[in-house]
Simulated assay, not measured.
Amino acid sequence: MGGIRFGADDLAQLRFAISPLWETVAALRAVADPGGHALHLPWIKRALALPRPALPAGLAVPAPRCPLAEFEEELSALDGPGGEALRAWWEAAVRPHWPRVRAALEADLAHRTRQLAEDGIQEMLTRLHPNLRWTGERLESPELDRGELTLDGGGLTLAPSAFAARCVLLPGRPGTPPCLVYPARAVGLLWERGAAAGDGLARLLGRTRAELLTRTTTPSTTTALAAQTGLTPGAVSQHLAVLRDTGLVTGHRYRREVYYRASELGRSLLAGAA
């Protein structure tokens, strides 16, 4: 059983981040263990045809320094060999799918921030993963390395991961707190192309708007929807504006982006069409 001990200052310094470097390393490990990552089999089948780099034993991924770091920015902080191999794997296997992966991670962040606002810090922390539990001032999990990490007042970064099969603690570094990586929600939907909109719904809304409504059953950004449908972001925005004006989707801003989700009316319409 491993744990993280919080002080009052640490709880006030919780933050969220997305780490493309971690996702790149975790994706490589997923390809090496398809049985343990069955949700990613549609992607793994394609990735198996790509040359896989051999990474140094004991490669330590640094904790992300900022919430929305770029891959190259994180790679520059990686100590030791393996950087060029990771860059090649990122370009070939992860970057082509990054808009979709990132959209799933951002949807998880939106859910956690709402949960934080509604239920408080402790409830949000224990719901990150079924194996996490809060005992007084300590967050515990049998998945964490044995022992205890005592935070020094700098807080903790929480990072959802599409490819992580369990919780992982990344060590901090000067100016950067440790990072708890946890499996993101709804990863099982990541590689689905989305069910085709029914003919009746397509006749009612138009095939493009019907497809966009189908894809907003989980919170999605304009960029993510454009990547999934092949439409331009401008075209997606125009169609979403119509869906929003008719009450079929709602938009909620998180940081610099707006997440669109089917409203109760929109979900009812989808259910009836199905």
Results as ranks from 00 to 15, higher is better:
Gly266Arg: 01
Gly198Cys: 05
Gly155Pro: 11
Glu106Met: 11
Ala54Glu: 15
Ala162Met: 07
Thr223Arg: 13
Glu264Ser: 10
Trp22Phe: 15
Ser19Asp: 10
Asp145Ser: 14
Trp89Thr: 02
Thr150Met: 10
Pro42Cys: 01
Gly251Tyr: 01
Leu212Glu: 02
Arg46His: 13
Ile18Gln: 09
Ala210Arg: 00
Leu169Trp: 05
Gly154Val: 03
Ala92Cys: 06
Ser76Pro: 10
Gly147Thr: 05
Ala88Glu: 04
Ala224Pro: 10
Ala93Val: 07
Leu11Ser: 06
Val168Ala: 11
Ala165Pro: 10
Pro64Phe: 00
Glu106Leu: 13
Thr24Tyr: 01
Thr24Ser: 07
His252Cys: 12
Gly194Gln: 04
Thr150Lys: 09
Val25Ser: 02
Ile18Asn: 06
Ala85Thr: 01
Pro20Asp: 01
Gly188Thr: 06
Glu143Phe: 06
Glu140Asp: 12
Ala88Cys: 06
Glu73Leu: 11
Val61Met: 08
Pro183Arg: 02
Leu50Thr: 07
Ala47Glu: 09
Gly188Asp: 14
Thr250Phe: 05
Leu50Ile: 12
Arg65Ser: 10
Phe163His: 03
Leu201Cys: 07
Glu73Cys: 11
Ser237Phe: 03
Ser263Cys: 13
Pro183Tyr: 00
Arg203Gly: 09
Ala162Thr: 09
Leu28Pro: 14
Leu269Tyr: 03
Ala196Pro: 12
Pro42Met: 03
Ala195Ser: 10
Trp22Val: 11
Leu41Trp: 11
Asp152Ala: 15
Trp134Met: 14
His111Glu: 14
Gly35Thr: 08
Pro96Gln: 02
Gly155Trp: 04
His129Trp: 12
Leu189Gly: 09
